[in-house]
């Protein structure tokens, strides 16, 4: 049994944003204050209380217009860099596929994970120095009970499809093969950063929909290790540096606790 994932077919998304509300409702996230945006994407970026966001894109080609809505959240990398970047093991790549921030108690709020994520999909509070992390966890609490993530369950048109990643990948290939004129021949998430659990197919090139397609096709941790192994001092030094930082921040946290 393989890992789970979600296939997003952008051609089927009507941009209703049911997923955006479902995510907040299931996870008890409060509404945030927003203002007018011309594209109607709102809030304009993901934040601590919006870990999934539908971005609207208008693509003009001569006389033709296309209007596409793209749901963004953590892509759940197969080899997550946030997991690697975290020196206290607050993250975990679960066997089901979800990348879960499962251990908030030991999180130091160092923001390494946030800086490491090439897709900027990890959210912290900017008004707190040592904020806890919030990110999409694929509704792990639902997943382990046999339920689909809240966003997938609510999707009216089936633009979001939950299943085993291998099967989804196969289906994505089939959909593209069946309609080669419609889809671009690219499954985002198949190879990017070594593969992600969330997969996207589209009729508009991904670059035009705000996807980072310039990321490497090898997993970042692997790549980093290749690099680090060539510089032994770094390989030894980095953990020490992290550990020192860890001790420092931990003490600081304890002191703070004591002060309460």
């Amino acid at each position: 049994m393989g890992q789970y994932g979600v296939l997003v077919d952008i051609t089927k998304c009507i941009g209703c944003r049911g997923c955006q509300v479902a995510c907040k409702n299931w996870n008890d996230l409060p509404a945030t204050k927003t203002t007018f945006t011309a594209s109607r994407t709102n809030p304009p970026q993901m934040n601590f209380n919006n870990v999934t966001l539908v971005n609207f894109h208008t693509i003009e080609k001569g006389d033709k217009v296309q209007w596409r809505a793209v749901k963004m959240q953590c892509f759940h990398c197969l080899e997550p860099i946030c997991f690697e970047a975290c020196f206290v093991h607050a993250y975990k790549k679960t066997p089901e596929g979800a990348v879960v921030y499962f251990n908030p108690e030991i999180c130091t709020g160092c923001r390494y994970c946030q800086l490491a994520c090439p897709f900027l999909n990890i959210q912290l509070k900017w008004d707190e120095v040592f904020s806890r992390v919030r990110k999409c966890d694929m509704c792990y609490d639902r997943l382990v009970r046999g339920l689909k993530p809240a966003c997938v369950a609510t999707c009216p048109t089936g633009a979001l499809k939950f299943g085993e990643r291998d099967a989804l990948l196969k289906e994505a290939r089939e959909r593209i093969a069946k309609n080669p004129d419609k889809y671009v021949d690219h499954i985002f998430g198949e190879k990017e950063v070594g593969g992600t659990s969330w997969l996207y197919i589209s009729d508009v090139p991904f670059e035009e929909l705000g996807f980072r397609t310039d990321v490497m096709h090898e997993s970042i941790p692997k790549y980093t290790w290749k690099y680090i192994s060539k510089a032994p001092i770094l390989a030894v030094g980095l953990p020490i540096l992290f550990a020192a930082f860890y001790v420092y921040t931990k003490r600081r946290a304890e002191n703070e606790d004591g002060g309460h």
Binding site: V21, A31, T32, K33, T34, N42
Partner: peptide, 12 residues
């Protein structure tokens, strides 16, 4: 409803 106001806050 805060959730809906967040999505569509202002008249245009």
């Amino acid at each position: 409803q805060p959730y809906l106001v967040e999505l569509a806050p202002e008249m245009f």
